[in-house]
Nucleic acid binder design. Structure first.
Length: 271
DNA sequence: TCGCTTGTTGATGG
DNA sequence: GCCATCAACAAGCG
């Protein structure tokens, strides 16, 4: 679930609830989410530290303190929730950070695909997320041109490649490509300048609206509002939507709005 | 039991 | 080197 907008929401939770407060205790209910560290080492590094202004890069949340930085990645099912001490522990609350005002920040994650890392300094941060491309929210049209140049892969694969641009997941990529009217299976380097401009604009507007909500909203006027319907219909063309696999991920798109089906026969007439 | 899932990584093959 | 596919990670649902 978590893509850039979700993680930005968790960043706000951490900022609102944590910034300026000291960490007084860390409860580890399931050490399976601790990566390259242990519960004792996490406590030694962070208990007593004051929480600073959190940052986000792509889908990574950087929990700053006046000491080490904790790096959180939420995989497909992770969340960060603020709770009162009286709130019962949820089944998937893996790590609880208790603050000096008794409030709690809980790393809640069903599937434990990712988790929490610890970085002692900026070199450590860089080692963990240094391979990430620029954050999708900050990408300009000119920058997108440079990022796509020479990429022979499919545009959807390129957009969801975190080392190219950081923050876009399956849902966002589909929504953005649909908004821009570009077929997900198009080779990235084939896009015309006008298409790249539309893509940059769609990325910006979809991201802005989604960040405001803290997730990709399933609005009736959006692709995301219909992609899980039994027989999904495109809210723009009113034609049937398609569900294919592109680069191993379920891909929802509209043949009317996004050109012809995958170019299996070699050359797509309108492509 | 199988297939599926909004994320990521590493192996493998073209 | 680039790209696509697949399996794996882990857990739940239908």
């Amino acid at each position: 679930m978590p893509e850039l907008p979700d993680v930005e929401g968790y960043r706000r939770v951490l900022d609102l609830c944590g910034s300026g407060h000291r960490i007084t205790r860390i409860d580890v209910a399931d050490a399976g989410v601790l990566r390259e560290t242990t519960a004792p080492r996490l406590r030694k590094a962070l208990v007593g530290r004051r929480v600073g202004a959190p940052e986000r890069h792509g889908k990574w949340l950087l929990a700053r303190t006046d000491g080490p930085t904790a790096l959180l990645h939420f995989g497909m099912t992770g969340r960060l929730v603020a709770q009162a001490p009286t709130d019962p522990l949820a089944p998937h609350d893996r790590v609880t950070f208790v603050l000096d005002d008794d409030r709690q920040l809980r790393f809640r994650d069903q599937r434990k695909l990712k988790g929490i890392w610890l970085a002692e300094d900026e070199d450590g941060v860089d080692r963990l997320i240094g391979d990430q491309g620029p954050d999708a929210l900050s990408v300009t049209p000119a920058q997108l041109d440079r990022l796509l140049a020479g990429r022979r892969g499919r545009i959807k694969s390129v957009l969801t490649d975190q080392s190219v641009v950081a923050g876009l997941g399956n849902l966002l990529a589909d929504e953005i490509l649909w908004r821009a009217g570009i077929r997900p299976s198009r080779p990235a380097s084939d896009l015309a300048p006008g298409e790249r401009r539309r893509l940059a604009g769609a990325m910006r507007s979809v991201l802005r609206a989604s960040v405001k909500e803290g997730h990709v909203p399933a609005r009736p006027s959006w692709l995301t509002g219909h992609r899980d319907d039994p027989d999904p219909v495109c809210p723009r063309s009113c034609g049937p939507m398609r569900r294919d696999r592109v680069s191993g991920r379920t891909t929802a798109w509209c043949p009317d709005c996004q050109g012809d089906p995958a170019p299996t026969s070699g050359r797509g007439p309108a492509a």
